[in-house]
Simulated scan of single mutants.
Amino acid sequence: MYDIVIIGGGAAGLFCSLSAPKNLRKIILEKNSSLGKKVILSGGERCNVTNIDITPEDDYFGENIKAIHSLLSKFSNYDMIDWVEKHGITTCVEDRGRVILESGKSKDLLDLLVRESTKNGTEIRTRFDITKIEKTNDIFRVHGNDGSIVEGKNLIIATGGKSFSQVGTDGFGYMIAKQFGIEIVDPYRGLCGMVTKEDLSGLSGSTLDLTLSLFDGKKLLYDEKGSFLFTHTGLSGPIVFNAVIAVGEHLRKLGIKESQQKSYFNENITIKLTFNEESMTKKVKSFFELDETKNEVIFHLSDLKSWEEAKVTGGGIKLSELTNVFESKKIEHLYFIGEVLDLTGKTGGFNLQQAWATGYVCGKGFGEN
């Protein structure tokens, strides 16, 4: 019998396990053959640990953005940087405030997380594919496809979202929430490219710094200046990835389901690009027929890139369903942390920071109890 069973060995699950009291018996159940696949891939495998400059209202999306203020007061981006450097790993700050490992090796941080987790008394089981979870007489029973059963007094869901399945995510956490009657915000794709009605393949591969503005009719939904990339099917780059979350949040508020999105995009959503002197290259000028009097172009959004390409999932478990240590208000001793929550950040280390912080607060909460 375990005191704490954590499903998911990513950033949130690992940080929760190393933050919980050492005297409690803990286990991480991970379906992949190794832990922290998304940690490894973060920042182009250089690990974008966090961001040096976080403004919750600007950098996060969800129904309850105010929650990030409380979360960061308990474990901030600076706390994470201090924790990493205290353990001998040096960080540096790059463009857009991204905090990166100076070694350029994500594995350095993952090895540290696993080492500190096991040092804190956590058992780890990989290749554990779950077939069923049930709660009987205040005990959670987690069934594996090998016939084994893991029992625990507390169950923590840290399984990530449903996008970017190459790291093992499949929406499992949402299924558990629904099983126990916990409300979720319908998941949507985040941090992926956009497909336009217009053929932009002639500019494919062109990287520029410019301003992107996203509109629903005449209503401005999102506006950001930064790095941008034309692709053979449309638009990509950091400011496009962020705009995708903004449009996902907009459609959520309108109550538009995923099956209706493409039709809504085609009829309503436009993208305006404003070029500055540096970004108005000869190739761009010629393609769009730009000059001193015309430095803007407008495209029509046709679709978003696939769930497979989306780096994060927006939506998720409603924070109003959880306590301040992320325990379900309906089901005692059931917790949700990390990307499975309805608290999604922009690209640039914001989502990993959410994972570290929710894992920390949840883990430390067991000591307070």
Rank of each mutant, 00 (worst) to 15 (best):
Y2N: 11
I6E: 01
G8Q: 08
G10A: 06
A12M: 06
A12D: 12
A12N: 10
L14I: 09
F15I: 08
L29Y: 12
E30Y: 03
L35E: 05
K37P: 05
K37D: 02
K38S: 09
V39N: 03
S42G: 11
C47Q: 00
N48T: 11
T50R: 07
T50P: 12
D53V: 04
P56H: 05
F61N: 05
H69L: 14
D82Q: 15
V84E: 09
R96F: 15
S103D: 10
S106L: 12
D108E: 13
V114R: 05
V114N: 01
E116A: 10
K119S: 12
K119W: 08
T126Y: 10
T126Q: 08
T126E: 10
I130S: 04
D138H: 04
F140P: 13
D146Y: 09
I149L: 01
I149G: 09
E151H: 08
E151Y: 04
K153N: 07
A158F: 07
A158I: 05
T159K: 04
T159G: 04
F164R: 11
Q166M: 10
V167C: 10
F172M: 01
Y174H: 13
I182Q: 04
D186C: 08
P187M: 07
Y188S: 01
Y188A: 10
R189H: 12
G190Q: 01
L191D: 00
K197P: 05
L212C: 08
S213Q: 06
L214A: 05
K218M: 07
K219N: 07
L220T: 11
L221T: 06
K225R: 15
G226I: 02
L229C: 03
T231S: 01
T231P: 10
T233A: 07
T233Y: 15
V240W: 13
V244A: 01
R252V: 11
Q261S: 11
Y264D: 08
Y264A: 07
F265N: 09
F265V: 01
E267V: 08
N276V: 13
V284D: 13
T293S: 15
F299H: 09
L304P: 03
V312A: 05
T313H: 11
G314K: 03
E321L: 00
L322M: 14
N324F: 08
F326H: 01
L334S: 06
L334P: 06
Y335N: 03
G338N: 03
K346N: 04
G348E: 10
G348D: 12
Q353R: 09
Q353L: 03
T358C: 02
G365N: 07
